[in-house]
Design a binder for these strands. Structure first.
Lengths: 295, 295
DNA sequence: AGAAGCAAAATGTCCTGGACAAAATGTTGA
DNA sequence: TCAACATTTTGTCCAGGACATTTTGCTTCT
């Protein structure tokens, strides 16, 4: 049984939205504790998570909020049933689910060696992370299992990055996310891809306030600010945050924005490069260099 | 000029708190746009940030909200005047302050090689992290500089950990923190020290709910749960959280708790090992093993 | 003096229900 | 086909009241 703020944390739906849905759609329908405050039973929270997940892919709440949980899940899976249902990916997921930690770590390192860092990111880490997110929403993955996954992948990626960054050239790229955006893996994947291209990365970790980004750009003489947004990040906050940042940053500093949230943005943001696929990163770096006559 | 949600993002103060302060303390006093919605001038946002920073350090809003911005800043600086200046530490801090990122990274690696992982943690990373925290409170360190510091140290530590964990023995130790406790470096330092002692670490990252800790313990067959608390964590929450966890965890699973918050706890918590200094970790591991006749 | 218990003050979170801004969708006309 | 406009859907903001929780200050007991 969770309080409204716990549900906000757990689902990413703001308190205002939770109350508004209750008013408009009659769901969720939390019980009340003895002080009249909302308390949400676990099954309703699960359904809320499923709804949020579908909304992150473009479904609209009014259309799906009335459906039973099973329909929501099948909607999610049918929607994502990629033609390339990778056997390899499933096998790796099973390692975590069966709690074979050393095997999992070894498998990751083995794939890294076999594929090289770039393909490892594109073909293994990215789809694996998506799969973990989906399994988590369906309830097939426990929170702690997702934590373990994140830690292990983080470890492998950070090692690979450190090993690859011997020689760096321009552009100098500042990597971070806006406040409330805590997902680190996306940032690490981008950093790895950039390091492969020989760019100079200045990772700031997650959740840097806009003003601090400005200060960091000038202190570190960055040429580019790269921002990561998970699918759970609210579109509007992303768009308005990017516009504000663009307005206050010198014109010659580029802004690159990527991640699940960006992928579903319809309209472009003026003066901001929206990255809809990890493929683009190499092209962007190359483009930046040729535009300035740098080899 | 920022909207209320932009200010929430930038300062970390919730909308409810912003409105409540306006009602109670007459600050902030945002203007209104033509729709009657609050818009905050930059100087008020700056002051809000200063207040938030002092609150994180233990000041209470009612006492400081009326002060002019200059007083707030000097309050921050006067609060921590330290004496025991380690020359080496200061020199390293200067590298970050002067934005010499490659030099800083190199210095860390050099010290790691010279001192070995264990002494590197105890004599370099721990005091450095404390110094950074203090400089940040004084305002001598920008938020983004602290972010850069954290990222770099994290990178070095994770590499060292990965390199050291070739073969591991019992005990199996689960590493994490309670929800709202986001500081990762403490956890990493502990993991590094444990790896040096050959223990098997299962890092869960930060912010694992109590129930998930239970599930993780049983899934991973952990012998010990190690929890980290930064100095900013409220004492009571720590104590009550530890008691609850102790009550719901099997007796044979030990709980070890450490960090700034634990260091100032007066009373012991029944059945919980309080770690007041990083020195103790080696002893604890050795003690666990001898008690069970493991070499 | 120090600890423990308790009352008062300070502070944050939650509530309701109305208003309306912003985005998405549908419709019409060129 | 596209653009302009109307309509519907959805989310955010507002006000001001209530009260839970935490901190502080006071009193009493050891």
């Amino acid at each position: 049984m969770l309080s409204i703020s716990a549900v906000e944390r757990d689902t990413g739906l703001s308190k205002d939205v939770l109350r508004m849905w209750e008013r408009r759609y009659k769901f969720p329908k939390p019980l009340r504790d003895r002080h009249g405050e909302r308390i949400y039973p676990p099954d309703q929270v699960t359904k809320l998570r499923a709804i949020k997940r579908l909304m992150d892919r473009g479904f609209r709440p009014g259309k799906i909020i009335g459906l039973p949980i099973d329909d929501l899940n099948s909607l999610g899976t049918s929607y994502t049933a990629h033609e390339d249902h990778d056997v390899e990916i499933d096998a790796i997921l099973a390692l975590i689910r069966n709690h074979q930690l050393p095997d999992f770590r070894q498998k990751l390192n083995q794939l890294l060696m076999k594929q090289g860092l770039q393909r490892f990111i594109m073909e293994t880490v990215a789809p694996l992370t998506t799969a973990v997110g989906e399994a988590w929403v369906r309830g097939d993955f426990a929170v702690f299992e997702e934590h373990i996954y994140t830690e292990q992948v983080q470890s492998v990626l950070r090692n690979a990055i450190a090993a690859s960054q011997s020689h760096t050239k321009p552009p100098r790229i500042l990597l971070t996310s806006f406040p409330t955006e805590q997902h680190n893996l996306g940032l690490l994947m981008v950093e790895a891809l950039l390091v492969v291209d020989g760019a100079t990365c200045i990772p700031l970790g997650t959740e840097t306030p806009a003003q601090e980004i400005l200060r960091a750009v000038s202190a570190q003489r960055a040429n580019v600010v790269a921002l990561s947004f998970s699918a759970a990040f609210p579109d509007r906050q992303a768009a308005s945050g990017l516009r504000e940042l663009r307005a206050s940053l010198p014109r010659e500093v580029e802004i690159w924005a990527g991640g699940g949230c960006i992928r579903r943005l319809r309209r472009a943001v003026d003066g901001v490069q929206l990255i809809k696929s990890l493929d683009q990163i190499g092209t962007l770096v190359a483009g930046w260099r040729t535009a300035r006559g740098i080899v």
